[in-house]
Each structure stands twice: as C-alpha cells, then as structure tokens.
Design a protein around this nucleic acid. Structure first.
Lengths: 191, 191
DNA sequence: TTGTAAGCGGAGGGTGCCTCCGTATATCGC
DNA sequence: GCGATATACGGAGGCACCCTCCGCTTACAA
C-alpha cells in the first residue's frame, strides 16, 4: 500500500503521457497554422501517431482545444489579479481587455473555441469561459464600486463581445481596429 | 432581331430558372435550420435536385450565400436611407444598428457569411459588405458632422464589430444582450 | 519473468466536397 | 410541327475528414 488507491489503481503509462504531450504540441502547431477548423487527422499525422490515439486522449475536438489553451487561460486569470492590484480600476480593466486581444492575436484558435461555447455548449471550454468571466467580473466590480463605470453590463456579455469583435475583424492591422473599438466600448462604460 | 444579343445568344431555359428558384428556397430553409455550415448536398436534396445542378448554378458556397441574402442586404440599405431622412443623426444610427441585429436574428447565417468575408475574402459577399459599409458610413458621417459623435471610428470596424458581437453572443436572450452592448458602444461614440 | 490492464494504430463505414460527363430536353430556325 | 443543338440535368466517383471499434502490442506490477 505505498500509493493511495482511492480510485486510481495505477499511474498512467509512460508512453501514454509522452504521446499526450506529442499530441498537444502537434495540435498547437496545426491550429496555429490552419486555424481551429484544421483536420484532427492532420494533428495525429503531425504527432506521428494514429488517429485512434488522438481520439482516446481527447474524445472531442473541444477537449483538445481545452487542453491546448488551458495554460493561456490560466495566465490571463493571473494577469487580471495583478493588474487589479497595481492599477486604478478602469485602467486595469482596459489593460486586461487589451491583454486578451494580445493573447488572441497569437492564439487565434482560442477565440473560435470560446465563440463556440455559445453555439454548442461544451463542458470543459465552458469552464475556461467561467474563469475568464470571473476574472473580468472582479475588474468590472472594482471599477463600478469606485464609481468610475456604470454597472449594467454583465462580464460575460463584455467578454463574448470582445471575442466576437476579434473574430470578425481581420486583415493585417486588425489588432489596431479592435483596440479602437475597445476604446469606444470603455468610453461607453464610463459614468 | 427582336432581342438585343450583345453577348447573350439565348434567354435562359425555363427549367434552369425554375431550378434556380427552388435551390434558393431550399437554401433559405436549410441555412435557417442548420446554420450556414449546413451541407450543400442537404440543400440539393431539399430542392429535389441533383448536387451537380446546385454547383452549376452556384459554383461556390459563397455564391449561394450571396444570392440568398442579397434581398436582405438591399432592404438594410434602404432602411438606412429612410432612417437618415426621418430621425436625428445619432438616433438614426442606433436604430439602424438595432435593425441589423433584428435582421441577423432571423438570418443568423448572414452574420457568419459576413464574418467569413474577413477570413477568406470572397468577391460577391465583399460587395454586400461594401454596400452596408456605405450605408453605415452615411449615418456615421451625418452624426459626426452634427457634432454628436466623435469621428474616429471607421464604419467597417463598427459593422464588423456588431457582426462579431452577434455571432459570439448566444442563448435565448442573446438579442437583449447584444442591444445592451450596442448601447454601450453608442454611448462611447458620443462626444 | 510473466500475466494483464493499458495503450496503440488503422481499417472501415458514414458524410460532405466538388468535378466530370453521359443523358435528357427546351429552344430556335426552318 | 420538326429536327438540330446548345443548355441543362443528375449522380457516380475520387478525395478528405469524422469517429468507432477491435485485434495487436507493451509497460508495469507482482
């Protein structure tokens, strides 16, 4: 009885964890190139593994998104806390939303994945959205309580709006466009 | 020489125009149900025609979108002119954007089609976007010249932002959410 | 060392995309 | 009316992708 075996009879096999990592790396590559609609078989090929292996590790496309972007979501949540501690409320909000744009810039797939939540709700991604919503909720509440912003906009509405704006806007200078729209949004949030 | 025959040796065959209409009706039905990603073979089936016939009339998916939503786009452009004539500038702008939401509510596929423009630019849909941008540009300019709004937001940015917001937001009360965000946007546009 | 649970790979059945070409027919000149 | 022929139709076929299922392989534990 050297291990606790409440529900976990064995630790995962070495090849399993290795292959899982390979799949994640391959998915990152493929999604960054071909967008989030890229073929899962391409991911398996890139990883040098069978398609069956991919599906065993990640039963759905969403599960794979979730795993690929979990780290990014975690970082965003941390950034929210830091900004909130260091900056005045509205400026913190602005910076965090801009940080979102920045993340989305490199991880365009994440936007689509989040946008997908609303269409067909998917457990694991919904939880990512939950955490982001909570982070944004904190920023918004702080700014509202400081009397800087009106408080009639739900965090989720704002977050999804931002995702949608990023998703629709394209072209070489799309980030500048999104930031302009974001400025307008924040101006509109002012009391 | 009863007909002009500059480049058109014959008028189109009766069965051809009939089938074209059937395809359009079927596409409307199928897209409204299954979203814009619905299968084109399903459209052909719904129309009771072969897949080859569909592809002859509409060589690409975008061409079919274009044909399906052309009427809606035309109506939106007209509405812009009417609102502009009848209402004060900012209110006209607000109403037109709300009308967009309303149209999108029933023609969800159009949003996706427009959003698609930015990703892979497609001639016929791009022209639809052009006309909407022009309509919105008129409303915006009028409001700006009246001194009601700041003038630093491009019509296309605003339009695509709206499309994106609609696209991301979902759920039973999504229209209310979008309208709230829209209010914030317009408030932010005020001088 | 060896039994076995855990993991692997890819064949296979289903669907959709789009092309191509043999067949059918609406239109036009007579 | 009556061919002749341009036009249009339909769907088979080749390809890619989705996802499942199951026989083979292997890492781990005893």
């Amino acid at each position: 009885m050297t291990e606790e075996r409440s529900q976990t009879p064995r630790k995962p096999r070495a090849d399993a964890t290795r292959n899982r990592d390979r799949l994640l790396a391959a998915a990152r590559t493929v999604f960054n190139q071909g967008g989030p609609a890229a073929s899962l078989e391409a991911v398996a090929r890139e990883a040098g593994l069978g398609i069956g292996t991919l599906y065993r590790h990640f039963p759905t496309r969403e599960a794979l998104y979730e795993a690929v972007y979990r780290r990014e979501v975690d970082q965003l949540v941390e950034v929210a806390a830091r900004l909130s501690a260091e900056l005045p409320p509205t400026e913190a909000l602005r910076r965090w939303l801009a940080a979102n744009v920045e993340f989305i810039a490199t991880k365009k797939g994440m936007a689509a994945a989040l946008a997908m939540v609303s269409h067909k709700s998917s457990e694991p991604i919904a939880s990512a959205l939950d955490r982001l919503r909570a982070a944004l909720g904190g920023l918004l509440r702080r700014a509202t309580e400081a009397g800087e912003l009106r408080g009639d906009l739900d965090p989720e509405e704002l977050l999804l709006a931002l995702v949608g704006i990023c998703y629709a806007q394209e072209g070489p200078d799309w980030r500048a466009k999104v930031l302009r729209v974001l400025d307008v949004l924040i101006a509109g949030l002012r009391r």
